[in-house]
Design a protein around this nucleic acid. Structure first.
Length: 231
DNA sequence: TCATTAAGTATGC
DNA sequence: GCATACTTAATGA
């Protein structure tokens, strides 16, 4: 395996306060691995033997209901830690992580977590900050699911994807990884048919443009109106 | 308002 | 040509 470059970590929040030598230390103990689109990095309920940092690509974090269908809890973007069960005092992963596009991640044995927290300034606070942000986002979508109509939920979900992973193009902002209507239905607690109908009608209205697994939001401001958020 | 059923077209390996 | 993605209409809770 080629030696990893220090610049991979030096600008990321959990590591930005560290000395070069410390980053070297961290990288030398990391395992780097590539994941194909659709493959699982780890699965819900399995022993949390490693924690991870996403270098490139996108992940979806899913939980399976007793009935057997999946819920997409959130997405992970490059630069984010994930699988940090040790921070939650857990010895199993609370959810499954799937590569939404071809992805590359670093990982370390969970046994190193206490050492990272103790030795590397800023690592602990940044980790808990991202955990807090994720919890907040999950709570937002939860209350949204309970109170808002389907159209607003789908609009919000699209906006969230655009804000977290959007890339600007001539036509608008495109979601940076493959998303199906089925995926969106799993994010919003509806059916793929309803999502398909909504996207079709939004396309007719010039708000989005979509082809198979690919969505561009051409009029984000109108989607914001549809999402019904105040302000 | 929305899920379900069903029956179709389009797309890509 | 097959599986997967997507569309659309009809029906009914």
């Amino acid at each position: 395996m080629p030696k990893l470059d220090e610049s991979l970590l030096s600008d990321l929040p959990p590591f930005c306060l560290l000395e070069k030598s410390q980053i070297r230390e961290i990288l030398d103990r990391a395992v780097s691995r590539r994941y194909e689109e659709g493959s699982a990095i780890f699965r819900e309920g399995h022993d949390a033997d490693r924690f991870y940092l996403l270098l490139d690509g996108y992940l979806r974090v899913v939980r399976t209901t007793p009935g057997g269908d999946q819920i997409i809890v959130l997405h992970i973007s490059p630069g984010q830690l994930f699988g940090i069960a040790p921070a939650l005092q857990r010895d199993t992963y609370p959810a499954t992580s799937i590569a939404a596009a071809e992805s590359i991640a670093l990982s370390w044995p969970t046994s190193l977590w206490p050492e990272f927290v103790a030795n590397y300034p800023g690592f602990a606070t940044e980790s808990y900050k991202t955990l807090g942000q994720r919890l907040g986002q999950i709570q937002d979508t939860l209350t949204e699911m309970a109170t808002q109509a389907v159209e607003k939920r789908v609009a919000c979900a699209l906006l969230r994807l655009v804000n977290q992973t959007g890339r600007k193009t001539e036509e608008g902002i495109e979601i940076a990884f493959p998303v199906t209507r089925h995926d969106i239905s799993e994010m919003t607690g509806t059916t793929l048919h309803t999502v398909s109908r909504l996207l079709s009608s939004w396309q007719k209205d010039g708000i989005v443009q979509s082809t198979r697994k690919h969505i561009v939001v051409t009029a984000p401001h109108r989607l914001v109106v549809l999402s019904g958020i105040e302000g």
